[in-house]
Design a binder for these strands. Structure first.
Lengths: 210, 210
DNA sequence: GTGTTAAAATGGACAGTGTCAGTTTAAGGA
DNA sequence: TCCTTAAACTGACACTGTCCATTTTAACAC
């Protein structure tokens, strides 16, 4: 009933009913993504769940594409935070760092299973969006700097190694999310398959020419 | 004007105006996929291009999903033919065979760029469709039998190696098609990057423990 | 030839979508 | 107190996939 409420009021610009509809819309969009998949995230459904008119989101997102891009940026930011944290303090153990990086991506992609897929749907989001690109670069840079820090003589370009690692991680996740692979253990190593597939690649990178 | 025409007529069932609208629809659908991407493939657009009413396709495909699945099966069949042909006569040269298999996938995915993507859109097609699954298995089996034929002692399960190879191929293609990677040459080997990324993996598979 | 029949093609309708236009509401500054 | 302006509203539009009743069409039995 005093300065606190006053401040809150002062932050609201003219015409606003919610404190900040944009934040509410992003939250409801993410909720719909988790519960119904990306096709459940319609402008009108988001507006319904937020309790506003079907055209209210247009004031905050000029198109559905922009709204989905904003949701994807949030998801990317979370992935970037997790991967960067996972490889911290593993700079001198590149093989472990690669495994930790990959493991983080796997867990992130499989746990709430609809989020990861949105990140790569070019028809739905604008991958040139600056906010999105920044977060995407943070993930890729984490992997790249991890390879730069170690002392191994790379037979191919460091960027090629990074692309190889990322391609395998992303490819395996994509196939799993599409339902083409199932979670399984490798028959020889008894490791979960997502760990086992990295073995050959890491061997190829770190033990070649030896 | 004789038995040949008669046979053609006898094949047509009652009510048909086109010789076989189903085939025409699949052709127009593929054409729209190539020219406008998967979002251009609407039932009504396919019907328009085929010169029939918007509801005519319903007689041949009970839903859009089924129609897209049929298109995807055609695409998969072509990929299967190409990959199987590519590894023929390379049974005793597994490394070359992997490269040939991968190269075929790359070319197929990049040349008309919209076809490959449809194959993995679970929201759009039914990957449990028998016709589709059969063609999908032909591709995977080509890779799997290629690994089974050679005499290398695998440190991991053969299926794990197959999944690793396929994950990398599929992951790289996906990222390229999404616009996240660009065609480039590896700075060290001077190979196209899509060839270079396979090097580490093949090294890891065929030269480990040596 | 003449009906009969059943598949195929038709036009119309429906709910849902993204987007746009015009209108109303409400907060903050003059 | 009035005015400005951003936000939210109602309503409409074209488009989509899907369903419906109807009509057309070609093969078959007689």
């Amino acid at each position: 009933m005093d300065s606190f409420n006053l401040k809150a009021k002062q932050k609201r610009t003219a015409g606003q009913k919610h404190g900040d509809l944009r934040i509410v819309l992003l939250r409801e969009g993410l909720s719909l993504l988790d519960s119904q998949g990306v096709e459940g995230v319609t402008i009108r459904a988001v507006a319904r769940n937020a309790g506003v008119a079907h055209s209210a989101p247009a004031n905050h997102f000029p198109s559905k594409r922009v709204m989905l891009t904003a949701i994807a940026a949030k998801i990317f930011a979370e992935l970037a935070d997790l991967t960067i944290e996972a490889v911290t303090d593993l700079a001198d153990k590149p093989e472990q760092a690669i495994q930790a990086f990959a493991e983080t991506c796997f867990q992130f992609a499989f746990d709430p299973p609809n989020r990861y897929q949105l990140l790569w749907q070019r028809q739905l989001i604008d991958q040139d969006d600056p906010a999105l690109a920044t977060e995407m670069d943070r993930v890729y840079s984490a992997l790249l700097s991890l390879l730069r820090q170690d002392q191994v003589k790379h037979r191919v370009d460091i960027e090629t190694d990074a692309i190889a690692i990322w391609s395998m991680i992303h490819g395996y996740i994509s196939m799993r999310l599409d339902g083409n692979f199932v979670a399984a253990k490798d028959a020889v190593t008894n490791l979960p398959r997502h760990k086992a597939i990295l073995l050959s690649l890491i061997d190829g990178i770190y033990y070649r020419d030896s």
